[in-house]
Each structure stands twice: as C-alpha cells, then as structure tokens.
Nucleic acid binder design. Structure first.
Lengths: 238, 238
DNA sequence: CGTTTGCTTGACAGCATTCAACGTTGGTGG
DNA sequence: CCACCAACGTTGAATGCTGTCAAGCAAACG
C-alpha cells in the first residue's frame, strides 16, 4: 500500500465525464479539485478497506478493477459488486461510520481518495455536486435491485449472460470494445457474485461457446452473438 | 388515492426517532416541518408509485406496510423490500428522475410526502439533515448487500429464518413484541423477496413448526425459539 | 352462502451442487 | 532451460434441494 503525496485534479482527469463530477461546470470543478485528496496505488489482491474499518473517505477508481464482498459470521462470503474506472467505493460506510464490506483490487489499481467530511461540506455549497452525489448513491441502490432480481429469479445461464452484458456495456462506456474483454476475476468470484458455484459458471461458459454465443479462452472472452445472449435473459420464468 | 391538505409536523410525530429526522435538534426539526408536504392515505393494494413514474418526492411511511418490486421485461418480478413505519420509499428515483420500482401498500397506510427538491435545499442548510439523509441511503445499500448474501448463498430455511429475524427486530424497534407478529404479505410475496416459490416458503414454515421453532397459523406467527432460528443462519455453507 | 384468494401437502422432475479427476497456466527456483 | 508447484479452469457422475404440477383445504369477501 502506497500513499502518494501527489494531488489529482478532477478538472484535468479523463474520467470526469464518468466519475462523481459528471456535468459540473468548470468553476465547480475547480472547487472539487480541493476536495479530492491523495491518490493511492494498490497491487493486485491488496485490500483498500475491510469490513469494520473506520469510514473516513470514499474512493473513486482511477485505473484498475475492484471487487467488494460481504461476509457472514461463518466465513461464507458474497461478492456484491465489481468496480471499474470512474466508479465509487465505500458508500456502505456512511451509515455506521464503519465499512460493512471489503474492497479488494483485482489488478494493480489506482484510486482517488475523497474525504467524506469534505464532500459533505462542499456539496452544501455546490448544489450540482450534491445532486450528482445523490444520483450516484441512488444508482447503486437501483443496481443492487437489479442484482436481487437476477439472484432471485434467473437461471444460471441467464445470470451469466446478464453479467457479461453488463460488463461489456460498462467497458464500452469507457471506450473499450463491446465484443472482446478480459475478465479480471476468477470463476469463483463470478460465481459468488451470481450466487453460483464455480463449476456452474465454467459449465455455462462452455455451453455458451458450444452454442456459438461466445469464444472463451480462459479469461479472454469474445462475444460472438450479443442478441443471443440478450435472448437468454427473458428465458423461462425459472 | 386521496390527497389530504393537512400538513404533518415531524416535530410532533411519534416516529421522529425512527424516521429521517433522527437526532435533529428542536430548532432544526421546525425547519424540517416546512419541508414535509401533505400526508397521503392509501388503501390496501393501492400503488404509491410505479416504475417509470416521474420522480418528485420521497415518501416516509407513517402507518401501514409496503412492498417494493422491480419487474423484468418478461413480466417476472422480484420484491426488493418491505417497508414499515419510519422507513423511506422512493430513493431509487433520484438517479434517473424516474422511479425504477413499484411501491404497493400491503395494508391501509399513510405516508408523508417529502418533495425531493426541498429536501436537497434544506439539507444544504441543515448539515445534520444532510448527514442523516446520507446515512439513510447508505443503510439501504448495506441492507441490499445483506439481501444479496442471503439470495446468493443461503438455503431456503436459512433465508426464511433471516427474514423473520429481521422482521421481528424491526418490529421490536417500533415497540411491538419480538415474539409474535402478523405477516402483512402473502407466501408468494415472501417467496419473491427470498428468491423462493410460495410452496417452498409454506413448507419451510411447516418445518419450523414441526421443529418447535415457530407457531404458525396462516399469517399469525409466534416465535418460540429465537436462538434456534438464529442457529439456522450459520448452517451448511449451502 | 358461494366464490375467490391464499395456504398446505404430496409426488415427481430438473437444475445446480457436490465430489472427484484431470488439464492448463504462470511463477519460482534448481 | 526446464521441472515443479500452486492456483485456476474444465468436465463427468451422482446427489439433493427446490421447482413444478396437482389436489384439497381454509379464510376472506361480497
């Protein structure tokens, strides 16, 4: 874990149209710059924060890829999300001033630290920031509801299909190809997120490949038939 | 659907220690009073808002009981939560200015309407309100993660057990008995929330009764062995 | 009092898990 | 350079939990 003194300027960040400052004016952006603290670099498998840690800051992913997970007392755990550039980590901590999940880097990554007290201060003065922050939290709630729908009512292959479509869509929004991607997570992590065992995930990948929907080479995925994947979603009411 | 002109004062509301104004000073409370709009009364099965509706207000449950549900295109739907007195409805709407789920009264209910623009205004001026609002949104995110854990990794009986324990705990916080409760929702709605079919829910209830954990008479539930229920949660890693 | 809606229970089927074996990949050190 | 090892991924066979289908019962409602 390394703390870099270097400050980062949102106003000159290539992610400003994806990240918290979406839609802010140049003058507002300059004020945001004061808010964002140091950048922090993490290696693969490093933990950004852990459940139980005191909550002080949010983190915006600058580069790399994260997972968040919650744990039951018995050690069983559940991946609750995967976060990529421009996405926020730590919103769970606001409610009790302690984090309720772990955040782990899935590859070498950088995050911008946003001291929460400063965000609250500033969002009292900059109403566009306030609104944008509320939108981000609300979007997380909506996303979670989507995952609940997936976990509660979809079959294994429909879950994986939804997962892949969501991933490609987010990658596309970041300028990557919509048809080929490299998974940053293991089959087990995908399974945990989707409420499936790793073998089931693996089988679903193989099946998709047999059906000509995907080309799968370990973590390299190429989407051959997007509409075919999309068709799976609306399949058999479980 | 009835709109009552009568205004409600948070400062004199018995729910002020459970609802949005938790921990606010008397002087702040008076300012909140201006914010909260009319009260609205709904009959059982009435819809408070529907996915796609324009988002303008949040609603605080004053009396009664609600469910929220999301729907897939194919009509399949998923209950995402049950809300009781003091809990907030509509947070999902902030992100796109349209609601993304339906909110339905499960019994005759009253809600307080909180125009969202006024909440944003006022929370710029009253930092305790701002903080409290953020805590409420964050708590919803944490709750959703708990449901994801449940849906992703628990067996049917553990899910029902977690559901019942959560319900009794919330009822207890509202001054009701922790051991006897009346379910406001059908087996099918419980099943939808827990990712199970209604028959599975019914069987789990019967099984709990056979094991002496519960006394079940349709929707009247008496908890006979809370620690027995709690033990089920940590059972068999699925 | 009859109809509708919700609940319970049984038998059976199916999908995902479990258990196990084997293959692949990437890193480490001889 | 290659052997080895550990982590990850694939595949098969069998088990079991939950879903499906069906029938009957209970409660609520008009």
């Amino acid at each position: 874990m390394k703390l870099e003194a270097m400050k980062v300027a949102c106003s000159s960040c290539s992610l400003r149209e994806l990240c918290l400052p979406v839609g802010l004016s140049d003058s507002d952006l300059e004020r945001i710059d004061q808010m964002v603290g140091s950048r922090r670099t993490l290696k693969r498998a490093e933990v950004l924060f852990r459940a139980g840690d005191r909550f002080e800051s949010l983190f915006a992913v600058r580069t790399g890829f994260f997972k968040t997970r919650v744990s039951a007392e018995d050690g069983r755990d559940q991946v609750t999300g995967f976060q990529m550039a421009g996405e926020l980590l730590g919103l769970d901590g606001i409610s009790t001033e302690r984090h309720s999940c772990d955040a782990v880097a899935l590859e070498d990554s950088q995050v911008c630290q946003i001291p929460y007290s400063r965000l609250e201060e500033l969002s009292r003065e900059v109403s566009d920031l306030q609104h944008q922050f509320h939108r981000v939290m609300s979007r997380e709630i909506v996303r979670d509801h989507g995952v609940m729908l997936l976990l509660g009512s979809m079959r294994a292959e429909a879950r994986l299909s939804a997962f892949l479509l969501n991933l490609t869509q987010r990658l596309q929004a970041r300028g990557f190809s919509g048809s080929s991607l490299v998974l940053r997570m293991t089959r087990e992590e995908i399974g945990s997120y989707l409420g499936l065992k790793l073998e089931t995930v693996s089988r679903a990948f193989s099946h998709f490949q047999d059906d000509g929907l995907l080309e799968v080479k370990q973590r390299d995925i190429r989407v051959l038939d997007e509409s075919g994947l999309r068709r799976l979603l609306n399949e058999t009411p479980c």
